[in-house]
């Protein structure tokens, strides 16, 4: 299974950096997300995760370093968390860490809301 890398050079500030590693199960989502066509952006992320869960079936360590996402993107982020939660229910090992600037109370609320809606434990790490 291939790794997934998007926007490594940060050429588009409205798209987050994505580094999904199929060997280690380490998945990084970092930066800001307010792209014009969120479905086009997030579709390969869903596909990668679903393939990993179906074929690799090892643990997933998901690291989120998003500093901003608009409301359109938030629905897609929630869908990622739901994929992870489903894997956990099926017996997969999932750990999700969300790095948060301690000043960002708005983002803290978003994370709380994501945890409530998805049912996934989100470990918040203040930076």
């Amino acid at each position: 299974m291939q790794n997934l890398s998007i926007n490594q050079l940060h050429t588009d500030v409205s798209i987050p950096r994505v580094e999904f590693n199929a060997e280690t199960g380490h998945c990084l989502l970092a930066g800001e997300a307010y792209m014009e066509q969120p479905y086009v952006f997030y579709k390969p992320l869903y596909e990668w995760l679903n393939t990993y869960i179906r074929e690799v079936r090892k643990s997933i360590f998901f690291e989120v370093r998003l500093t901003y996402f608009n409301t359109s993107s938030s629905k897609f982020v929630l869908d990622i968390l739901r994929i992870l939660k489903r894997y956990e229910i099926e017996g997969g090992q999932v750990e999700l860490q969300w790095y948060l600037r301690s000043i960002d109370e708005d983002m803290r609320e978003e994370i709380e809301d994501f945890a409530l809606t998805s049912g996934l434990d989100i470990h918040v790490i203040d930076i």
């Binding site: 409301t71 359109s72 938030s74 629905k75 929630l78 809301d113 409530l116 809606t117």
Partner: peptide, 12 residues
């Protein structure tokens, strides 16, 4: 907001 987002309702 949680309800609407959870339902994916009318996001657009």
């Amino acid at each position: 907001k949680r309800t609407l987002r959870g339902q994916g309702e009318e996001l657009n």
